[in-house]
Nucleic acid binder design. Structure first.
Length: 280
DNA sequence: AGAATTTGACCGTA
DNA sequence: TACGGTCAAATTCT
């Protein structure tokens, strides 16, 4: 457990560091002519924050509320993506003697995310993994059907990751995505991969530095942002993601005032410094 | 033809 | 016994 906390802490610090670097890049890129770059950076920043927050939530949960489901944060239109951790009852003690491929309802730890659909679209934003739909059901009392997905690499590597997607009752543009199991297939979220690319690039160009060295090629970002769905065709498995990655709108992701780039730079930096000093 | 999706049935849990 | 998660055959897509 302690080891796991240590690992989670490292991931949190990594994600927050990445978010900070990306925010610095965003400040530099903020220019009406560079909207796509800003959009891409915003998605990455939010992704980092979400991961960090979910880990923090999970840590808090394991410390004080283990075995109980914490209440979901209400879907908010002011956030592109809200996330909470659910640790449903650990049923390993109840049913460990059953065959793993039975139809028995699996009681694995679950994580719920609330995601905003791109305006006008009927699907939640891509999470970067390859999923295969295996079921679709109308749930009692729900207006919208629930869709069941499992990892597209399940056959190849016995990956147990699943997810259920259901449109929010209250906000049509919000989807509740419940993740179950974990990716044992080695598949890495494409969003995460993109983030790592950016992290690698930004490593060379520390955000405090000024000048050409601190800029990431705009054409590179444009390509990343505008890459069509098929670019995620997995050559080894032949799997093609059906949804678009990075398909959030500016209104979805630019949820915090961008005035920070104009007037709040120093206070934002101070905030980060304070935050990191508390973590380390 | 093979992959992906749909959909009705099955079955475990509450 | 109803509900909901999963299976698998049928259908559609590429």
């Amino acid at each position: 457990m302690g080891e796991e906390n240590c690992w989670e802490r490292e991931v949190v610090i990594t994600e927050l560091t990445k978010g900070r670097e990306l925010m610095c890049q965003l400040q530099k890129q903020f220019d009406p002519m560079k909207q796509e770059v800003c959009q891409y950076l915003s998605v990455e920043i939010l992704s980092s924050y979400d991961k960090a927050l979910s880990l923090l939530n999970g840590t808090a949960l394991s410390g004080m509320n283990k075995g109980k489901q914490i209440s979901n944060p209400a879907p908010s239109s002011s956030t592109g993506k809200l996330e909470s951790l659910h640790l449903l009852a650990d049923a390993s003690t109840k049913s460990s003697d059953r065959p793993c491929n039975s139809r028995k309802r699996k009681m694995v730890s679950r994580r719920t995310e609330y995601v905003h659909a791109r305006s006008g679209e009927e699907v939640p934003p891509e999470d970067g993994y390859s999923w295969r739909k295996y079921g679709h059901k109308y749930i009692l009392g729900a207006k919208h059907p629930r869709e069941y997905y499992r990892c597209a690499r399940r056959r190849l590597s016995s990956c147990t990751a699943t997810k259920m997607v259901q449109r929010s009752e209250t906000e049509a543009s919000v989807f509740e995505v419940i993740y179950g199991g974990s990716h044992s297939c080695g598949q890495e979220s494409k969003l995460q991969q993109n983030g790592e690319l950016v992290a690698a690039l930004t490593k060379e160009t520390q955000c405090d530095e000024v000048g050409r060295g601190g800029e990431i090629s705009e054409s590179y970002f444009t390509e990343m942002v505008s890459t069509p769905n098929t670019s995620f065709n997995n050559s080894s498995t032949g799997i093609v993601n059906s949804n678009s990655i990075l398909n959030m709108t500016n209104s979805d992701i630019m949820t915090t005032p961008t005035s920070a780039h104009a007037e709040g730079n120093s206070s934002a930096e101070d905030l980060w410094t304070t935050f990191f000093s508390t973590l380390k």
